[in-house]
Write a protein that binds this DNA or RNA. Structure first.
Length: 417
RNA sequence: GGGGGAAUGUCCCGAGCGGCAAAGGGGGCGGACUGUAAAUCCGCUGGCUAUGCCUUCGUAGGUUCGAGUCCUACUUCCCCCA
């Protein structure tokens, strides 16, 4: 595909969303002709999504912006199996109750990025347990199993790796791609979905769906994948000191989310601005040109824009503000992550080590001791000398104290009555 | 069906004469240098009521003063022969 005509493909291409695409010319034509329904599936393996899925979410957002209809497929059914694609080991099986809880959490995340409703370009959310749960095994095998050959299934990279690594791949997992293929067929029938998008690891699963629809319904469907997101250092993206970079505020506060983007490597700034913000491309271009310390400006904009999408305008502003005060100016910035400490516990005697664990800055007290040993722990800005020394009311400023691990992980401890 | 190997620090890879909290990497964390970046150098990288105590080497038993290391059974995987 040289130069797409449709707004959607043009945008995806320009902003770096395109990895692979089936029959791009025909898809381009279809997208130019009028609103198209496209879907991306998300398995309900956790009650939130993290930045690993953000490329997909942004792709749906652009889809909607370009006048098409996003279909969010929640894998309530497929989650009962677990996608084996590019995985070394089986995923732990989740029970139905957990899956339902997770699905509810995902819904909230999407509501921030997409507009849901009944209109022609409003997003809709469907759950594949709707058609997967009622399936009966033998009829299903007879009807669909005959369209899949083991030879072909084994040829996909997504499972080849597992086989080569000599890790077991169960029959249950092996069925996953068949069911995802069935999803696509079902969505094309029910919602007129003609395009499935996904991460590059989904290519095999997507292609299977396209082939199934062609064989059974003689219908042409399309697939499109986004590049796997790694930092320019080659590391898998999406980890912060605390763990995964979640998209909902309960799991990861806006300030920490902002910090994640602020700490982007220089070489990733341009790419991330295109993928994770909606800034015009000429502006992105300008920011990407910044060199040396000036590129920090671009990182701040990246952080604020990305946070705005995930948590709203106000939260993004506050996060930026908090960061500015914590790093550039005064010590006591409100808005930093915080934990509560009952006054009674303070009076009973609390060691610095205990506080660091309470604040989530360290996993254990031993870890705090090591941190102190490397002079990486600070209390109210002062380097802590002894992890076991107790904190007293005298250390409080405005009823709280500030813990710092390393150069940039701050947590406020509020003492409550 | 027969024979031979493998599973190690709950992030990963990987050494390990019966005395082992267990070599070495990677990753991660901290320090120095910087721009809250990268690169580089240095330190740390099981837990605790901590000069000691407790829990770790696929699972379950056994031998031994003492087992990651030896024996038995089991699980999973690889290779060779039929």
């Amino acid at each position: 595909m040289n130069t797409p005509r449709s707004e959607f493909l043009k945008t995806l291409a320009a902003r770096g969303f395109l990895h692979q695409c089936t029959d791009p010319a025909a898809l381009d034509e279809r997208l130019s002709a009028g609103p198209v329904a496209a879907y991306i599936g998300f398995d309900a393996t956790a009650d939130s999504l993290h930045v690993g899925s953000l490329v997909q979410i942004m792709a749906l957002r652009w889809l909607q912006k370009c006048g098409h209809k996003p279909v969010v497929l929640i894998g309530g059914g497929t989650t009962q199996i677990g996608d084996p694609s590019f995985r070394d080991a089986s995923r732990p099986l989740l029970d139905g109750e957990q899956i339902a809880r997770n699905a509810a959490g995902l819904k909230q995340v999407f509501s921030r990025y997409l507009t849901f409703g009944d209109g022609p370009t409003d997003a809709v959310m469907v759950d594949n347990s709707e058609w997967l749960d009622p399936l009966r095994y033998l009829p299903f095998l007879r009807e669909f199993g005959s369209h899949f050959t083991i030879n072909r299934m084994l040829s996909f990279d997504s499972v080849r790796q597992r086989l080569e690594r000599e890790q077991p791949l169960t029959l249950l997992e092996f069925n996953y791609m068949v069911l995802q293929a069935f999803d696509f067929l079902e969505l094309s029938r029910r919602h007129g979905c003609v395009l499935q998008m996904g991460g590059s690891d989904q290519w095999g699963n997507i292609v299977n769906g396209i082939e199934l629809a062609r064989r059974i319904d003689q219908r042409q469907l399309f697939g499109l994948t986004t590049p796997l997101l790694t930092t320019s250092a080659g590391a898998k993206m999406g980890k912060t000191a605390g763990g995964a970079v979640w998209l909902n505020a309960e799991r990861l506060g806006p300030y920490e989310f902002w910090q994640f983007w602020r700490n982007t490597e220089d070489d990733d700034v341009g790419r991330f601005l295109r993928l994770f913000t909606e800034l015009p491309l000429d502006e992105v271009q300008r920011l990407s040109q910044l060199k040396g310390a000036e590129i920090n400006e671009a990182k701040q904009i990246l952080a604020t824009e990305a946070t705005r999408l995930a948590h709203g305008d106000e939260a993004a502003r506050e996060a930026a503000d908090t960061a500015r005060r914590a790093f550039e100016g005064g010590e006591n910035a409100k808005g930093l992550p915080s934990v509560a400490l009952p006054r009674s516990e303070l009076d009973a005697g609390v060691s610095v080590a205990q506080l660091f664990v309470l604040a989530g800055l360290s996993a254990s007290r031993s870890e705090v001791r090591r941190l102190v040993l490397n002079s990486g722990a600070r209390l109210n800005g002062e380097v802590v000398q002894d992890a076991d020394c107790h904190v007293t009311a005298a250390d409080l400023t405005d009823g709280s104290l500030k813990l710092t691990a390393g150069r940039k992980r701050h947590v406020l401890v509020h003492v409550s009555d």
